[in-house]
Write a protein that binds this DNA or RNA. Structure first.
Length: 556
RNA sequence: GCGCCCAUAGCUCAGAUGGAUAGAGCGACGGACUACGAAUCCGUAGGUCGCAGGUUCGAAUCCUGCUGGGCGUACCA
């Protein structure tokens, strides 16, 4: 059992005895929240329950805190002392023995240390990246990929069943534009003059695709009828680009469980099925020759078009069908990770969810603010069409997969991110990811040396654990034991960036310890204890790094 | 105009659902390798948490207004 959980139970019991004895008069025990204080002198955990009860009880908080403290029964012997402090905090000090003995849990669980069950097997879908197959992934997609993939990993570790999904927009105007772009470049390859319109995709990759087609099919598509050719070109190009996207994602350590094609929705005629269903329910009506969805019913400022007057469905129509499909797959929670420029669609999608009779809370949209890509301090506009973008692939090659992933996860996703390529390249040796990886490599190095000297790497039972009694060692041990709680909190708040913050702290605690103390010394008992501690640090570093998809190298 | 997000050290950002004395990294300055990896460590300097009110035992955190920035506000995708 976790320390926090055990302590919460103890406090609840104390509250009940207070109520029984008539010291407190509330009939219900309020939720007990435990905080980790910033300062050591405030103990390992602090509880503000007395101050919350004070107004209800009309008694001074210090009095209530004192009463609770007096009624505490420490059956598990985990408490060194309890103090009433400040305006009425209850400060709890856990015994060093209890902390040290908890290291055994880390050893036993090893690779699965940190996993919890707060998710209770709930089905969750995380949809992310979902870039249109009209061009390679750029750096902005990279941020979404890192955030989505890590969030999925965290949710899995917290006991959810997670499906990672990529939605492919493989129909619509942009597909035609793509086909036309490639077809023009193809024609150009045969030496003919072309007029390449502005709205076509300008990137170099379009020419690559055209060359690929020429190599394979020679001039077969040179003089076909326009419609036929365009359709061939767009399908070919989309497949080609999508294959590249899959590769880039694999290189970025991101694997999807499902690739969901918009085209399949069209082929199964899902859109007319869904619109007529919603029309029956009264959420869709006809006006000016178009079909409108009554999003105003859910707080939108105006209704939105689903089917245009020309009979063409809008992008919104596909999204309705897609989300209906998600609902039919019975997920308890649907998480969409979107670029912040899509925030206007949140309300719209929530309307859809509610129109299908579900609570809007089923859908969670996590907005990832845009990446402001810079080169030498100057912003680079990111548009697939202008062709002036930096591919994710290029970034991975320049700064490495690990640095890129870590960088994207270092700050909360709701603040915009400046990513200066020159800076990232220049500072790659000072990148924070190396700080963490170095801690791991250092531990591996210590363990290698120990083996070289034919020292036994001990198990918990073989160690005199109370030799770990330095303040730095206690800090490290407590930090390690916080890890499961961290995963739980990151999962509940959908905040993957907390993992990098934790890793940085843990690595810092270790580096500091390392510089001050020797692990391998002449004192063989002490050496054993410290080797064990260091091995446990490695377990946690490795687990947390795996969570964010960054390698834990044994040498650097 | 309306909506969403943001404003914390010179720069880039944390800040655990309202807690006690504000935290890192980079940059600046000064130190530490005859012992496990110096990609490290130790120390110093740096703050009216955008401004003004409000809520309460207690606010960087919640509410209102203002200022300044990003994004959105299509029968585009």
């Amino acid at each position: 059992m976790g320390t926090k959980k055990a302590l919460t139970g103890i406090i609840k019991d104390a509250l009940s005895s207070c109520i029984q004895k008539g010291v407190l008069s509330v009939n219900e025990i309020p939720a007990v929240e435990l905080d980790t204080p910033r300062f050591q002198q405030h103990g390992d955990f602090s509880c503000n329950i007395a101050m919350i009860l004070a107004s209800k009880e009309k008694k001074p908080p210090q009095f209530i805190a004192k009463s609770i403290a007096e009624n505490i029964e420490d059956n598990y012997r985990i408490l060194a002392k309890v103090e009433v402090a400040g305006p009425g905090f209850l400060n709890f000090f856990i015994t060093d023995d209890y902390w040290r003995n908890s290291l055994k849990d880390i050893e036993e669980l090893n690779g699965s240390y940190g996993k919890g069950n707060i998710g209770a097997g709930k089905e969750v879908q995380v949809e992310f990246v979902s870039a249109n197959p009209t061009g390679p992934l750029h750096i902005g997609h990279g941020r979404g990929a890192a955030v989505g993939d890590t969030l999925a990993n965290i949710l899995k570790a917290a006991g959810y069943n997670v499906v990672k999904e990529y939605y492919i927009n493989d129909v619509g105007n942009q597909m035609e534009t793509l086909g036309r772009s490639v077809s023009l470049r193809y024609i150009e390859l045969f030496g003919r003059e072309i007029d390449f319109p502005k709205e076509c995709y300008q990137g170099e990759y379009i020419k690559d695709i055209a060359r690929d087609i020429k190599a394979k099919y020679k001039d077969r598509y040179l003089d076909g009828s326009d419609g036929e050719a365009t359709s061939f070109f767009s399908v070919y190009a989309a497949d080609y680009i999508l294959e590249g996207i899959r590769e880039d994602l694999r290189d970025f350590n991101v694997e999807f469980d499902e690739w969901f094609s918009e085209k399949t929705l069209i082929e199964k005629d899902k859109i007319s099925e869904i619109t007529s269903e919603l029309e029956d329910k009264g959420y869709i009506y006809q006006k000016d020759g178009a079909f409108w969805f009554k999003t105003t019913k859910f707080g939108d400022e105006k209704d939105r078009v689903v089917i245009r007057a020309n009979g063409q469905p809008t992008y919104f129509a596909s999204d309705i069908a897609y989300h209906k499909d998600k609902l039919e797959r019975k997920f308890d929670m649907i998480i969409n990770i979107w670029g912040a420029d899509h925030h206007g669609y949140i309300l719209r999608m929530e309307s859809v969810i509610q129109a299908f009779g579900k609570k809007k809370e089923v859908l969670e949209v996590l907005l990832v603010q845009l990446v402001n890509l810079m080169r030498d301090g100057k912003s680079i506009a990111m548009s697939t069409r202008s062709g002036e973008f930096v591919a994710l692939k290029e970034v991975i090659q320049e700064v490495g997969k690990d640095a890129a992933r870590y960088f994207f996860l270092m700050r909360s996703s709701d603040s915009p991110l400046d990513f200066d390529l020159e800076l990232a390249k220049k500072q790659s040796n000072e990148n924070p990811v190396y700080y963490v990886q170095y801690a791991h490599a250092r531990i591996c190095s210590i363990l290698r040396l120990a083996k070289q000297r034919e020292l036994h790497i001990p198990r918990f039972e073989e160690v005199k654990i109370d030799l770990l009694n330095l303040p730095e060692e206690m800090i490290l041990i407590k930090q390690l034991l916080k890890y499961p709680d961290l995963i739980e909190r990151s999962a509940l708040s959908l905040e993957p960036h907390r993992i990098t913050g934790y890793l940085n702290e843990l690595a810092g605690d270790f580096h500091s310890y390392y510089n001050k103390n020797r692990v391998i010394s002449n004192d063989s008992n002490l050496t054993m204890s410290r080797l064990f501690l260091v091995k446990m640090i490695r377990v946690v570093l490795k687990n947390a790094l795996r969570l964010i998809g960054v390698d834990a190298p044994e040498r650097m």
